[in-house]
Nucleic acid binder design. Structure first.
Lengths: 159, 159
DNA sequence: CTGAATAGGACGAAAAATGTCCGGTTTAAG
DNA sequence: CTTAAACCGGACATTTTTCGTCCTATTCAG
């Protein structure tokens, strides 16, 4: 249960773009150097981000990538799903497969519910939130307040 | 970002134990056959559950496993951490390593906060909740209500 | 036309997940 | 005491996923 490098690089890359003027075109090579991410790999990741419509690309000389939306209109879940495809905590929950294990299907339901909560958590944080925090830290303001507050989840009801 | 087979089997195995009288000793072989899980693999998983104190084991003839606590005192996070070790969404968050990438540390903080929320979600569901739901489903009552309700997360504050 | 830059697919190495196996230890029972 | 049953623990093998690289095509500015 972890976040892949590809997703991590994707977030860092988007964060880099978000740190420039909207519409500013930036090359993979620049991001790769500045953020110390393997260039070819980052190129692949940005292909996914482009296909998902999070960034736009210009090909040819003078080309590069630029944000397709404002950074407060892009959240972490968008990026994860762009890079990894739809989140599925379990094979069961993969749309295509479906669930054959009728004897433990309560588990599938549980995991589904947990998955939705996780997705909601991820969808609740935008790139703008993250960029803001990033900027704060660079200026040594180091806010001690957590980015996401603790949540008291409602009690489970099975009936 | 997914749950491993080992964790899945661990949950199913615990669920099986929870379906019997507290203190009833059950062999790996039985769980393996009834739930169709590879025996040696399940044995390994139960070793972890034992080390974590979620179940107790008796060795020798007539041995087996039994719950160490009541099922409402064991939650899903307990099981995941018993089988996989502490959850770390990112290498950064692995206690030992620490974070060297100062330039993207806001990301680490974000992931840390998200991680805590995810953990809270997992910790909020007990084996008893799951077993109850399981029983309901077997008796064809099929509750349509989700096990975990949707959560409206509080807004992010960066200041 | 030429060089710069992304698009996309094929490929490969490394790491992790998923098991298997075997010798060791403990225990109940004869 | 011996034996068979059952867990313990480590080493090992297989498969899948991750983490990239590389090459060719396409597009575009100058």
């Amino acid at each position: 249960m972890h976040i892949t490098r590809a997703v991590e690089y994707g977030i860092i890359g988007m964060l880099y773009l978000a740190g420039h003027d909207r519409g500013k075109v930036v090359m993979i090579d620049e991001i790769s150097r500045k953020e110390d991410i393997p260039k070819s790999f980052l190129g692949k990741i940005f292909q996914s981000l482009t296909r998902a419509g999070l960034v736009n690309s210009n090909r040819g000389a003078g080309g590069g990538f630029y944000m397709a939306r404002d950074s407060d209109q892009i959240n972490i879940l968008d990026i994860i799903e762009a890079v990894e495809g739809k989140i599925a905590l379990q094979r069961c929950l993969d749309a295509a497969t479906g669930c054959s294990n009728s004897d433990s299907c309560a588990l599938c339901l549980l995991l589904h519910d947990i998955q939705e909560t996780v997705k909601q958590t991820l969808a609740n944080t935008t790139l703008a939130d993250l960029a803001q925090k990033h900027a704060d830290m660079k200026s040594h303001k180091h806010p001690q307040r957590p980015l996401t507050e603790s949540v008291r989840l409602p009690d489970i009801r099975t009936e």
